[in-house]
């Protein structure tokens, strides 16, 4: 049982995210076809495949190095809006993680919060716009609250995942106000946001691999 996140744990987290993206590639593309341009699954899978290869080749030691490499590879390979959004999130997480060999639960929560702030800075999204923010923001809030109340990382991440899933589902009735989906206006209502769906997989991957 480990309660901190070291380089190996961070690599396991990112690898699990890559596996979930690959497994759900068609689902993500299908969701994107309804309100976007039908490439979210393909683009994210291409990016995470490149990330997995880069992690295997470079075997970065610290969590910050893992997150930085992930962000850089996503920026270079994904394109569209997801590349800059996920890329910025991981690069900001890397900066917040600092050079240490491992992160305690509070430091991990702080890094995730920095990633969320990066998405906001890049995408200028707000709550209710029907974006990845609507899943990741409640997850970061739940993680902060659980860690502050002394929960273990494992329990805190389980709570974060429940919040992310609820946030993801809450995008279904929303009217899109960002990105290509916003051109659809009322026609975007009734569809689950693909970005909120993939970012929930990122939280699910953390819950499955971190905190022992």
């Amino acid at each position: 049982m480990t309660t901190t996140v070291d380089g190996g744990a961070a690599t396991a987290w990112i690898s699990e995210f890559a596996r979930l993206v690959a497994e759900n590639k068609d689902l993500l593309t299908h969701l994107d076809a309804a309100i976007g341009d039908a490439d979210h699954g393909t683009n994210m899978d291409r990016g995470m495949t490149a990330v997995t290869a880069a992690l295997a080749e470079n075997a970065p030691a610290s969590p910050a190095e893992v997150l930085k490499l992930t962000g850089m590879r996503l920026v270079s390979t994904v394109g569209g809006a997801s590349g800059p959004l996920y890329g910025t999130a991981f690069l900001r997480m890397a900066t917040a993680a600092g050079p240490g060999p491992s992160l305690d639960p509070g430091e991990f929560a702080k890094a995730l919060r920095a990633g969320l702030d990066g998405i906001v800075a890049r995408g200028r999204a707000e709550a209710g716009d029907k974006t990845m923010f609507d899943a990741l923001s409640p997850a970061a809030d739940a993680l902060d609250a659980a860690v502050a109340s002394g929960a273990s990382l494992r329990d805190a991440l389980a709570q974060a995942l429940r919040a992310a899933e609820a946030g993801r589902d809450s995008t279904i009735p929303m009217l899109a106000r960002k990105g290509r989906a916003s051109y659809l206006g009322e026609r975007s209502v009734g569809h689950q946001d693909p970005g909120a769906t993939s970012v929930t997989m990122l939280v699910a991957a953390a819950a499955a691999t971190l905190g022992g």
Binding site: G79, G80, A81, G83, P84, L85, G87, G123, R180
Partner: peptide, 11 residues
């Protein structure tokens, strides 16, 4: 002005 183009050029 497309979300992806704007963000990638900004980066």
């Amino acid at each position: 002005n497309y979300t992806g183009d704007v963000m990638n050029f900004e980066m």
